[in-house]
């Protein structure tokens, strides 16, 4: 008997939507993360405080609530805008995909800002001074001395955030996006087998998170290949 009860294609599609949300939110989230880290490292007090406030708000608010704010809030704002321009009389709804991606990118950005700031500060000052002493320009020192090490220091943290992001995509099902959980829910409604389909959903997520975890571990080893291994 078919374990998937004919829902294989739908589930595969759901898994692809999940990955699409995750990767888009990752790309956009890295932008917020870099901007957030730059703000926290800024020389201006107000910008620094705004950077810390962003991280604090994103880390202290439930992800589900952020998705709801963006989804319902965004729809209300868009409807208001459309009305003021005289475009549409009815209710404008933003797509669940866009709202989910934007909300999750903000969450990822909040955590990534903290990680990137820490990585930037973890680079010994002497190395930058040495680069300057050799006549490196700021840009050269940044690309050849700072960036490779920011990557190495930030990778474990960003890797954790990435795996969390994959799991958080499940929350976008609450606003109606047809990703893995939503598809499983629909399959449940038709077949009356909730345990089977939610277990399948769990297995898909488990495969996604563990494979990405292994990938990150590999990247980490690669990024720190110049480091001396601890004697065992």
């Amino acid at each position: 008997m078919d374990v998937l009860m004919g829902w294989g294609g739908q589930l595969l599609h759901g898994a692809l939507v999940t990955l699409e949300v995750a990767f888009t939110a990752l790309a956009l989230g890295l932008v917020w993360g870099i901007l957030g880290a730059l703000a926290q490292l800024s020389r201006w007090w107000l910008v620094r405080q705004l950077g810390f406030l962003f991280t604090l708000a994103m880390r202290g608010t439930p992800e589900l609530l952020i998705i709801l704010i963006i989804y319902f809030g965004g729809s209300v704002t868009l409807t208001g805008l459309a009305k003021s321009v005289g475009l549409a009389a009815g209710f404008v709804e933003i797509p669940a995909f866009a709202a989910g991606v934007f909300a999750l990118s903000l969450v990822f950005g909040g955590y990534a800002a903290e990680v990137l700031r820490g990585a930037f500060l973890a680079i010994p000052k002497g190395q930058i001074e040495a680069a300057e002493a050799f006549g490196f320009s700021w840009w050269d020192a940044f690309t050849t001395v700072r960036l490779p090490q920011i990557w190495r220091f930030a990778l474990p943290g960003l890797g954790n955030n990435w795996v969390s992001l994959i799991k958080d995509t499940s929350l976008v099902s609450v606003v109606g996006l047809e990703e893995i959980i939503r598809v499983s829910g629909m399959a449940t409604a038709v077949t009356g087998e909730p345990f089977r389909f939610y277990l399948i959903a769990a297995v898909i997520f488990y495969v996604l998170t563990t494979s990405n975890g292994l990938l990150i571990a590999k990247l980490e080893r690669r990024a720190s290949r110049g480091e001396r291994e601890l004697a065992r």
Binding site: L171, I181, S184, Y198, F205, T209, T210
Partner: peptide, 9 residues
């Protein structure tokens, strides 16, 4: 390794 949402469901 799995989302809390799927565990609750």
């Amino acid at each position: 390794g799995t989302p809390l949402l799927v565990q609750i469901f």
